[in-house]
Nucleic acid binder design. Structure first.
Lengths: 336, 336
DNA sequence: TTGAAAGCGGTACCAG
DNA sequence: CTGGTACCGCTTTCAA
């Protein structure tokens, strides 16, 4: 493997100059720089990240901690982060907590703290106090994307407010029998998201003076299949039917729509459905929803950290990402 | 940041011994090892990956090159790889080529070759001769998951054979008017996958003596939305309708099913649909398909590279991953 | 079983 | 603008 010495030898300058030239530092004459560049290119020289990391204390890599990689939201954020990092030629190290059974403990200890990254982005994760302490100990800038985490700044939509607005849309259409299909309020994830969305629903109901019924709080576990089953079960039962459903995510909303159609009912004629997210599939299903832009959230977060790494002052406060209401064909006025 | 010297000082042994003890090498007495372990734990010491990488020549990280991260197949493979790496406490560095406009060139040069990884897994990518050469130059073991690449070993299903079997299923049901909804045969991806799937379709048709029609080769671009539109367009036109559709992926198949239903037709009564993949959504839509297991493919690939890194002899030949036929409700006998 | 010391391949400070 | 040269923090012979 060709090293910096080879390049130095080939060009007749010192390794110090080669290093400076190749990194684009200013104090190198253009002619030397060009000569060095050519030699490096010709020899196929690429600096070892271990060596430069050790010497400079900067790894030029960013860590991204995700609860899983197979959900629309996570992958979209990941793409956004990646786009930004790629532009800055930073590498992306993926720390997958691996769902509920991939022990966080070890991932945390072995990898994240291994000084392999200059900064960290966490997706929709809640951290224990101990974990947060460890994170701060690394001295790396950290930011959370997706769900608020006490003690850490984050960027994400105002979950509760958006959920409220979505529910209000249904209420404004004259619906009062509104079911809430919620995500799992589970410990290993950031439970604050599904909780906030449920609360937004309740806010709207309370404000409109509509009583909520416990049997109309269904669990869709953020999954299309589970939601389909849950709503299917309801429709098969003799229980009273809602005239509208507010789902805590588009995937759940679509699952509900499938179930409704399978029962020979029509969306929105018999039951209106609204979601939150702006999932890829939403348009294909004609789902009315509040669209958020996870790609932008990811790239914003990455850009922010990159800025800090290059010396700009840190912004410690959290940011609310925008959402946009998109009316499609899954919601309609309640039949009187 | 606590370094190995701190631990050495705290325990009164040399850094060499600390290093050996913490890495579990055999030539350290159990008592010393335990003492060192405790001190390390207590001080919160974690070895710097840059330093150990530089000294040992091993980074304990694996690179994964993906064309994008937001498709079912890629994320599933990624999860599989990750599970394996996590178990071996290897880190995963994600190299996202970023679709068609994220310049591969730079990603390749700057990152992959930066000696940041010990091995490389490429998903469904075709490489130029130059790229392959660079890969080999790194001296790292490489494997491809998903689509065959000339010159590199790979693990993936037998695309052509599976496509043929899927089509034969339709033929066996008495269908002759079979449309093929194919993926994009695009340069920046591994075009061999969609091509092989189309060829499998043609193989089956030819073998059954059924002429193929050019107007029944539609482009679904591996996307649900595009497929829905393509099939929707066909059904809106006065063109003759097929009695069955073989889609080159489940996502495309589902798009087709949506379009068919939107046109007031029934699946499978009016049109049968079959896919390939075993996508998460397939079950919810009752899609008959050939299921593959990308998670397993990913973990197999990772395990194989890990083995080689730990000295086991390399297996240079490619492997065909298994598929499983799953009959659901989207296919039925042709009406006579 | 343990220690001493020479690197690993760059970076960055200090001279010139 | 360029060169000399201590490190960076760990691994790995080689000796003891």
């Amino acid at each position: 493997m060709t090293s910096i010495d080879d390049v130095a030898r080939a060009t007749g300058v010192s390794t110090a100059t080669v290093s400076r030239a190749l990194r684009g530092l200013s104090n190198v004459s253009e002619s030397t720089r060009e000569r060095i560049r050519q030699a490096a290119e010709q020899l196929g020289y690429v600096a070892s990240s271990s060596a430069s990391g050790l010497a400079s204390g900067r790894t030029r890599a960013m860590g991204v901690v995700v609860p899983s990689v197979s959900h629309w939201f996570y992958t979209a954020v990941l793409e956004g982060i990646d786009a930004e990092l790629r532009a800055a030629s930073y590498d992306l190290i993926l720390f997958n907590l691996g769902g509920r059974n991939g022990d966080r403990e070890r991932v945390f200890h072995r990898s994240i703290l291994r000084k392999r990254t200059d900064a960290l982005i966490a997706l929709c994760l809640d951290f224990t106090a101990a974990e947060q302490e460890q994170l701060l100990l690394t001295g790396h800038p950290v930011i959370v994307v997706g769900g608020p985490v006490r003690g850490l700044r984050h960027i994400g939509i105002d979950e509760r407010a958006v959920a409220r607005k979505a529910t209000e849309h249904l209420i404004a259409l004259g619906h009062r029998e509104i079911l809430h299909l919620g995500g799992e309020e589970d410990e290993w994830l950031n439970r604050r998201v599904p909780i906030a969305r449920r609360q937004g629903y309740e806010d709207a109901m309370v404000a409109a003076g509509i009583p909520t019924r416990s049997e109309w709080a269904l669990q869709g576990r953020f999954s299309l299949a589970h939601s389909r089953e849950a709503i299917g079960g309801l429709l098969s039962s003799p229980a009273p039917r809602p005239t509208a459903i507010f789902a805590g995510s588009d995937e759940m909303a679509i699952g509900a729509m499938l179930a409704i159609r399978e029962h020979g009912l029509s969306v929105p004629h018999d039951i209106s459905v609204i979601g939150i997210d702006g999932h890829d599939l939403a348009a294909s299903f004609g789902l009315t929803t509040f669209v958020q832009d996870p790609f932008a959230q990811g790239s914003t977060a990455a850009a922010l950290l990159l800025d800090e790494l290059s010396g700009k002052p840190a912004r410690t406060k959290s940011v609310h990402a925008p959402t946009r209401f998109v009316q499609r064909t899954s919601t309609a006025p309640a039949r009187s």
